[in-house]
């Protein structure tokens, strides 16, 4: 389980890498985009299956990306270059946040609602001197049955639930985790340092 703190931190690092101009407004907007997927933990109050499904999808970045590139819609002309870049950075931050839950035992239904299935893509890529190359992320299965038997979990309609702070096993305890492991704390600290340095750099350059 990767916490919202980490998705926001990583989203900010990616945004800092792709944006030339950085400001507190940019930080706030990117943070909102990176935290957006986890809002479905609240929607889980309506239907427990919606956690990691309702807002963890590939469709939202596709649609927004399409709108940003489409000439007919003309968002690019209306927003201007800087704002278009910021919008792209937000799309990237959102996508990275979804990827954290997809590449995890926790699973996310990234194709929902078009295809109702939770996926958890994880495994090992390594080279062993005795066994050779080891790759256990996908076990593709063609010809009937599930395409990704190892990665597939239950479905939203089938009552599969990813536990969330508001919907835990016994229905009484509430558990909200800010940091789940050491590396998560590190990523958060690094993001604070990098964002701080970029903002200082920017204000120094402007004065």
């Amino acid at each position: 389980m990767v916490t919202t703190l980490v998705t926001v931190a990583t989203g900010l690092l990616v945004a800092a890498a792709v944006l030339d101009r950085f400001s507190l407004r940019v930080v706030a907007l990117v943070a909102v985009a990176a935290a957006l997927p986890d809002v479905d933990a609240v929607l889980a109050v309506l239907h427990p299956g919606l956690h990691n499904a309702a807002l963890h999808n590939v469709w939202l970045p596709f649609i927004v990306g399409g709108l940003l590139t489409s000439r007919r819609v003309g968002l690019r002309e209306r927003l201007g270059n800087d704002e278009t870049r910021l919008a792209w950075a937000m799309v990237l931050a959102y996508t990275v946040a979804v990827a954290f839950d997809l590449f995890n035992v926790e699973s996310a239904a990234v194709l929902w609602p078009l295809h109702d299935r939770f996926f958890a893509v994880y495994g090992q890529l390594a080279y062993s001197t005795t066994e050779g190359l080891r790759f256990t992320f996908f076990e593709l299965q063609f010809g009937g049955g599930e395409l990704l038997p190892k990665a597939g979990r239950g479905t939203v309609a089938g009552g599969y639930v990813v536990p969330s702070p508001f919907v835990t096993g016994d229905g009484r305890t509430m558990r909200a985790v800010l940091v789940n492991a050491g590396w998560e704390l590190l990523v958060a600290l690094v993001a604070v340092a990098v964002v701080g340095l970029r903002l200082v750099d920017q204000t120094r350059g402007e004065s």
Partner: peptide
């Protein structure tokens, strides 16, 4: 002689996400 030596690339989900985010940031940057 013949001891197994393992050279890992990624073995946790978050390794994959960080690796992808790093590649993306480098390419776009």
């Amino acid at each position: 002689p013949g001891t197994e030596r393992i050279f890992p690339v990624v073995f946790r989900g978050w390794h994959v996400t960080l690796a992808l985010a790093g590649c993306l940031a480098t390419w776009l940057g």
